[in-house]
Design a protein around this nucleic acid. Structure first.
Length: 485
DNA sequence: ATGCCTGGCGGTCAGCCGTA
DNA sequence: TACGGCTGACCGCCAGGCAT
């Protein structure tokens, strides 16, 4: 055996151990022992040695964190079990409903674990032989994108774990962009003349989608783990799950609590409703889980969300703006939906210009008129919603909002069923409907035709070439080439 | 047994912002 | 421009509980 080789091997092992330890101290415990430049020196030395002895490079080497080769796209991967989202609730009454349902199914007095709901992107990490082999986004819950190369750059995620952990397991958690680092990056972008990102959540989601892991490595994403799936460890409570994750060197959010009954849950909520603003990352609520993991399977889940957990959303901020107009949009099924056109206003980090009014009854219920000042808020921090109009500010020239008699797209007389709220365009050949149907047909989950977005659909429908999804197949390349755009 | 009411659930629509 | 990641909220169906 070559003595240099052997010596290098030993040093590489030592360096990896040290770097992993410092990553853990810095990124998980927030108690660094050495200054950055010393850390950088360790990493440089490791990379140097691995370059000299390429056959000593392993998948779990911390050198892999600085970013691998750019990829051309992400592989689709199937999750071992569906990644569901949680049902949301907005007030204590809805939580009491949840508690009542759990009690009924559970048959005993439930204990709940309350965890902060981190505003980030859900990720599933797969470990094989205690080494991180895959990181995937949620996708549609069944199939997600393989973003392993990007995940590796997140230093608080262990690339390998100790023998305290099972051999094969999956960890799920949230990747997020810390506030201070996000602000710093945005400042840098503005200086460079680039458009700043809207908010940390979008920053995190966008970063994970980058094809060049080296670029991702420059964006200091973080991670909090909240569950583990494994065939070999049998854990009984969510409290044990969080403790095991912690022992396995996974970052877990430290502010969870075990609550006996809804009074304690309520206290947790009201405390964090204020305290969340002092955290170094965004939270959008609290997750309340039945502590008894062994009952989760029995309680089961709906198509969307488990019955043993619920998310409580912190109340949202409001803004005032003017309702300029109402447009009537024709959807795929012919339903004509009113959409509020608003004077652009900043609300929780995004500019809001439009909001759905759902249907005519909703307009009547709100009592709004064109020109009114309206209060809007974002449910769940994303979708803008018109709450009410400000009576004192109603302008003299406000106008009544009148539902159209004819379809705004094809002028066909609209129909309104006695029992139904919606008004419909009965013309199956209405261009808006045809477009909606073709887009739906081509969308993911159906035929999944690439390159057929709504712009393209608009072009082929208005050209008169296509009237239904079947016509798509008789389109020729020549016809497509003739189209504008 | 029949009809009404309620709540849960799936399907659908609506929207924003990031990368490529 | 396309697509994917995140989201809210409505409608209509259906099952189960209750009164008639």
């Amino acid at each position: 055996m070559n003595p240099d080789y052997e010596k290098a091997g030993k040093e590489i092992t030592r360096l990896r151990g040290e770097i992993n330890r410092h990553d853990y101290l810095y990124y998980v415990l927030a108690e660094p022992e050495i200054p950055d430049h010393q850390y950088d020196a360790l990493m440089r030395r490791l990379i140097e040695l691995e370059r000299a002895y390429p056959d000593l490079v392993t998948d779990d080497s911390p050198s892999r964190r600085v970013g691998g080769q750019p990829v051309s796209g992400f592989e689709q991967v199937r999750h071992s079990s569906r990644m569901l989202s949680l049902a949301n609730s907005y007030d204590i009454d809805e939580l009491l409903d949840f508690d009542r349902r759990v009690r009924e199914a559970y048959g005993r007095d439930p204990e709940y674990v309350c965890e902060l709901k981190i505003d980030g992107v859900a990720i599933a990490l797969t470990y094989r032989n205690r080494i991180l082999t895959r990181g995937a986004t949620r996708g549609d819950g069944a199939v997600g994108d393989d973003v392993t190369a990007n995940i590796r750059t997140i230093r608080s995620i262990p690339l390998s774990v100790s023998s305290d952990m099972p051999l094969d397991f999956e960890v799920r958690g949230e990747v997020y962009y810390p506030r201070a680092e996000f602000a710093e990056m945005n400042a840098g972008r503005e200086e460079a003349g680039l458009k700043p990102f809207m908010n940390p959540r979008n920053g995190a989601a966008g970063t994970l989608k980058m094809l060049d892991p080296q670029e991702v490595a420059r964006r200091p994403l973080r991670f909090f783990a909240y569950t583990i799936l494994s065939d070999t460890v049998r854990l009984e409570t969510q409290a044990q799950v969080l403790t095991l994750l912690r022992q396995g060197n996974f970052p877990t959010n430290p502010y969870w609590e075990l609550c006996k009954g809804m009074d304690e849950v309520r206290a947790f909520l009201s405390r964090w409703n204020e305290a969340r603003f002092d955290l170094p990352y965004d939270t959008d609520g609290v997750v309340i889980k039945l502590n008894d993991v062994t009952a989760w399977e029995r309680l089961g889940s709906t198509a969307k969300s488990p019955r043993w957990a619920v998310a409580y959303k912190f109340s949202t901020e409001k803004a005032l703006t003017r309702l300029l107009d109402v447009t009537w949009q024709v959807g795929r099924t012919g339903t004509v939906t009113p959409v509020a056109e608003l004077a652009p206003v900043l609300l929780l980090g995004t500019i809001v210009k439009r909001a759905t009014l759902h249907n005519e009854d909703e307009i009547k219920r709100l009592g709004i008129r064109k020109g009114d000042w309206v209060e809007i808020e974002k449910g769940g921090e994303i979708i803008p919603k018109v709450i009410r109009f400000i009576a004192e500010r109603r302008p003299a020239d406000s106008e009544e909002i009148v539902a159209p008699e004819q379809c705004p797209e094809c002028n066909t007389r609209l129909e309104r069923d006695e029992e139904e709220v919606a008004i419909r365009c009965p013309n199956r050949r209405c261009p808006a409907q045809v477009m909606g149907r073709i887009s739906h047909f081509a969308s993911r989950g159906a035929m999944d035709i690439d390159g057929l977005g709504h712009r393209t659909v608009e072009a082929i429908v208005s050209s008169g070439l296509v009237n239904d999804a079947g016509d798509l197949y008789s389109l020729t390349a020549g016809q497509v080439k003739e189209l504008p755009g």
